[in-house]
Design a binder for these strands. Sequence first.
DNA 1: AAATTTCGCGCG
DNA 2: AAAGCGCGCGAAATTT
Length: 567
Amino acid sequence: MLRRADAHGLPRGDATTTGRGTLAETVGAADRVVWDDTNRWYPALLAAGGRVERAYDLRLSRAILRRSALTAGTPFATRPPGEWDALGAAPAGPDPTLPARPDALFELGGATPRGQVAPSDLDPLPELADQLAALAGATGPDAPGRLRLLVAGESAGALVAAEMHHAGLPWRADVHDEILAGVLGPRPRPGERPARMEELARTIRAAIDAPPTLNPDSHPDLLKALQYAGVGTRSLRKGDLERLDHPVVEPLLEYKRLQRLLTANGWTWLDTWVRDGRFRTEYVVGGVVTGRWSSSGGGALQLPRQVRRAVVADPGWKLVVADAAQLEPRVLAGLASDERMADAGRGVDLYAGIVASGAVASREHAKVGMLGAMYGGTTGDSALVLPRLARAFPDAIALVERAARAGERGESVTTRLGRSSPGPGEAWHAAQTGAYAAEGADGAEGADASARARAQTRAWGRFTRNFVVQGTAAEWALCWLASIRRRLWELGTGDVAGAAAEPLARRAHLVFFLHDEVVVHAPESLVDDVAAVVAAAAEEAGRLLFGDFPVDFPLSVAVVDDYAQAK
DNA sequence: AAATTTCGCGCG
DNA sequence: AAAGCGCGCGAAATTT
């Protein structure tokens, strides 16, 4: 069931019951759609050549409003969990241009996974009314406005995610194969190691006098063999191995590097995830508690730099790659209204600005210091320069410290637009009270328990410390994405061949998003406009979050033929 | 045999 | 021993 709504999100006209077949006609004239789950409707609509201008995603918005501290006093937030809370995300797709995902558990219209409610059973109208009431009842500075912006951004993100899945990331399988063959040797037969890796395996065995049966992929066996050969290591981590002085280290690190490429982004990956020159992943909007996106399929948010050369624009097209420079510290400056940090960020390089302010001696110190402040680092250079940063930027540092203390007390924290962190959970509380009981007891066990509890306390403080920054940065990114999407559409079609029936075929469109970075696939004739669009959108995002507070969000923008050229 | 855990590494 | 935040994924080991 769908419902027409006006520009304020208020229902207009009668409810419409529709099947997917008639969806394109049904929403064709609507300026805004409210639906249970973007993933359930939008892929088919896109496949039918449709597009939605604006949407309200009830599932995603509900998740935010049920937990937000800003709506905590409303009946909506305090009601016990209901059917809408059990609503699982629909799978993205099916996309007619792509065969079913190899591991797809179910298809649209098929069985509903255990424990999840089929959305068709639920009436969106009362749910929408409830959510609008919760929004209206939000409390705090600018409360309704901020939360409305957040749910609008989250919903727009869902549109972007579905559209990116539909369009796919241009991917040249032949270039990818070239990269693999260059490093690993030609594609081996199934079950065999690539030539270069087999060679390295032999070198590794020779260096530690191991039998030819030693499989370097077996951690326990390899670790034992290393210890037997007198290589003093207790792990196989790259960082640990690098510190060792032994002839086996170099071939072993090289082997691991190749093994990683082969298993994560090798020929199997190519066969599985690239079809007809496109890589399609499923973006999971709000997949991270902080509001960041995650992805499912192909490890899309971990594409190694090594293979990005295979991301190539179509003939007559370019990739416009834009990333926000030092997004998180800038967001922190805005969150804390720290004018001195905002000043330091006036240029393209905030860390250089911090050095210029005299707070620290080097860019590296500025960087590890800020990262430590936002992550809760307590060791090394990061801890060393923190006091200097705290003196130079007291407001910013105080904000993350407050967030950490709140987490240590078991309280939740909230982003700029109103996304609140989850509580620490039962095990955490149990450890706290358990440790309290153990304090009185003598002996190593009591001390142990309370040490563990303290470590957990601090760990949750680091989580909430980071939550406010990472979560607000994710909100900035949502606003950025939504603005880019709207502005790209307004650019219209480029001077390029393409099917007229396909809305994106001749328009610049988003094809990739990675936390603080976007890739737009654009007809050559539009690249200057696209570069202007992403910059204007970044400015708009900053204004939406921080109003008149003068914090800048500069971008680095590259117009390239392949993704690897961007950095 | 299937499900779950461990380790490690890629990305921001 | 733990260790600065957030993730997804694959192979081998381990458990059921």
